[in-house]
């Protein structure tokens, strides 16, 4: 019987922090032996093995018993949980959006070499990695006591109640698109053929080389605006300022880009050089019109954003709606 008690205590001890192990086990041993003695005194005879077993079963699983001596018994506690859940939903949403966009593009561009799928890890692996990373970050924040700092807020940070807020779905989808665009822009994923029309090979012309970093910067600003919209929707002033910055950057890219005159290069194994040039000129015309329309849209949006930014800063950020 005492062998059973020692086995039980050793099992509890194995799950205890080393520094407290001997002390806790010694105290539990006295508790158990006292309980056995009291029971034996009641019965007037030694306990049978079955009775000793029942007594230990009453105490509970050694892991649970040891666990109760630990200060923290959870990975993500009640304080961190809402933050963990909110961030997890967004991160998993972005991952899902990236894959949906990538798969849609692959289908649309008949990307037969599967370059996108090669460039991106399997969706399950990415989802599990995202889940693990967010959870680990939450565990670290929990243990390091960052929860209070993470939840710091002021009423001014809250978005105005009647603000025409974009839905989370919309923002997350845009983030997904932007990530796929950046991956493509930096050559991490590629489409075998920009426009899958018959025998034509359509690629971006050399004119774009000058705009490589400005376009990358524009996309990063766009991504930052969307991430901020999720994390700090109430920073109306900062949002407006960033939007103005994005508008200026967009105009600064589009104006010289419009002057380039040639944006795609068309080649074909089957068509004659003249015919290919003709097609190229037609596509360039479409691009010219598109870039022109885009420039007008950017300038109009810039004017609206600048006026919103002015209003937000004049009235003191997020409380503009109270004025």
């Amino acid at each position: 019987m005492s062998d059973l008690i020692e086995r039980y205590l050793a099992a509890v001890g194995r799950a205890l922090p080393e520094g407290q192990r001997a002390d806790i086990v010694a105290e539990l041993r006295d508790e158990l032996l006292s309980a056995v003695e009291a029971r034996e005194a009641e019965l007037g005879r030694p306990l049978t093995v079955g009775e000793a077993e029942a007594l230990l079963l009453e105490r509970g699983n050694p892991l649970v018993v040891a666990g109760r001596f630990r200060q923290v018994q959870y990975l993500v506690g009640p304080e961190m949980f809402p933050m963990w859940w909110a961030v997890l939903k967004v991160v998993l949403g972005v991952v899902a959006a990236v894959y949906v966009v990538a798969i849609a593009l692959e289908i649309a561009f008949q990307n037969s070499d599967g370059a996108i799928r090669v460039a991106l890890p399997g969706v399950f692996t990415t989802l599990m990695t995202a889940f693990g990373s967010v959870t680990l970050a939450a565990v670290a924040a929990e243990r390091l006591g960052w929860a209070r700092a993470l939840y710091r807020w002021t009423p001014r940070d809250l978005p105005p109640p009647r603000a025409k807020a974009r839905s989370t779905f919309e923002i997350v989808t845009e983030i997904g698109l932007e990530i796929v665009f950046l991956l493509w822009w930096f050559g991490l994923i590629r489409f075998s053929n920009l426009v899958p029309w018959g025998e034509l090979e359509v690629e971006l012309s050399a004119a774009w080389a000058t705009f490589f970093w400005p376009v990358a910067l524009y996309s990063v600003v766009e991504l930052a605006i969307n991430l901020l919209a999720l994390a700090r929707p109430g920073w109306t002033g900062v949002h407006a300022a960033l939007s103005v910055g994005r508008g200026l950057l967009g105009a600064a890219i589009l104006i010289p880009l419009l002057r380039a005159g040639n944006w795609v290069s068309v080649s074909s194994a089957k068509l004659s050089a003249e015919r290919a040039l003709e097609v190229q000129a037609n596509i360039d015309l479409v691009v010219r019109v598109s870039l022109g329309v885009a420039l007008i849209a950017v300038l109009v949006k810039l004017a609206l954003d600048a006026s919103a930014a002015w209003r937000a800063f004049r009235t003191g950020g997020g409380v503009a709606h109270l004025a």
Binding site: Q20, I24, E27, L28, E31, R59, G60, V64, V65, R68, F69
Partner: peptide
């Protein structure tokens, strides 16, 4: 009170 609750509480 069971000892699983008592001893951790005492500590």
């Amino acid at each position: 009170i069971d000892e699983g609750a008592l001893y951790p509480m005492l500590r």
